[in-house]
Simulated assay, not measured.
Amino acid sequence: MNNPTDISLAADHLQLSPRTLERLERLQQFARQNQGRFSQLSRREKEILSLICRDFKNEDIARLLFISVHTVRTHRNNIWRTLGISSVVEAMRWAQAFDLV
């Protein structure tokens, strides 16, 4: 396999259902189309996005990262604005596409 992110080549070596393969291909296409916006997030914002998508609450994230809840909210608002999202469901799609969860 020359390109480890190429889902179609991976399918030759794995047994994936057509539905799973289609879902993975959609995520891969989404990631390619949105790499520019995603790369605008800071390392900390990506870390917080990952925690949000793993169902951590703002208070839990603040405690875990030794930052204030206000700082978590600010990061969260910046993430939402940068990615153009308005829900955790949309955030989950980004997190899955960019291997944060």
Rank of each mutant, 00 (worst) to 15 (best):
N2H: 10
N2E: 12
N3K: 07
N3Q: 03
T5Q: 05
D6V: 09
I7T: 03
I7N: 02
I7V: 14
S8G: 04
L9S: 14
L9P: 00
L9W: 08
A11W: 00
D12Y: 07
L14Y: 15
Q15K: 15
L16G: 06
S17E: 14
S17R: 13
P18Q: 14
P18G: 09
T20K: 14
E22C: 10
E22D: 15
L24A: 14
E25Y: 05
R26Y: 09
R26C: 07
L27W: 05
L27Y: 06
L27S: 00
Q28P: 03
Q28S: 14
Q28L: 12
F30H: 05
A31T: 08
A31H: 06
N34M: 04
N34Y: 02
N34P: 00
Q35V: 13
Q35E: 13
R37Q: 10
F38W: 06
F38C: 05
F38T: 03
S39K: 14
S39G: 01
Q40M: 10
Q40I: 02
L41G: 10
S42Y: 03
S42G: 09
S42E: 03
R43M: 12
R44T: 12
R44N: 09
E45H: 07
K46G: 10
E47D: 13
E47F: 09
I48V: 15
L49K: 05
S50A: 13
L51D: 00
I52G: 00
I52F: 11
I52K: 02
C53E: 00
R54C: 04
R54L: 07
R54Y: 03
D55T: 07
F56A: 03
K57D: 07
K57E: 11
K57R: 13
N58V: 01
E59C: 05
E59W: 04
E59G: 01
E59L: 11
D60C: 00
D60V: 05
D60W: 07
I61R: 00
I61G: 00
A62Q: 01
A62K: 01
A62T: 02
A62C: 09
R63L: 10
R63C: 03
R63E: 11
L65V: 01
L65M: 08
F66H: 06
F66C: 11
I67E: 02
S68Q: 06
S68D: 09
H70Y: 07
T71Y: 08
T71G: 01
T71N: 12
V72S: 04
R73C: 06
T74V: 06
H75P: 00
N77F: 10
N78I: 04
N78Y: 01
I79L: 05
I79P: 01
I79H: 02
I85P: 08
S86I: 02
S86F: 02
S86N: 14
V88M: 05
V88Q: 13
E90T: 09
A91F: 04
A91W: 08
R93I: 10
W94R: 08
W94P: 06
A95N: 05
Q96A: 14
Q96N: 12
Q96P: 02
Q96R: 15
Q96M: 14
A97E: 12
A97L: 07
A97P: 06
A97Q: 12
F98W: 09
F98S: 02
F98R: 01
D99L: 15
V101W: 04
V101A: 11
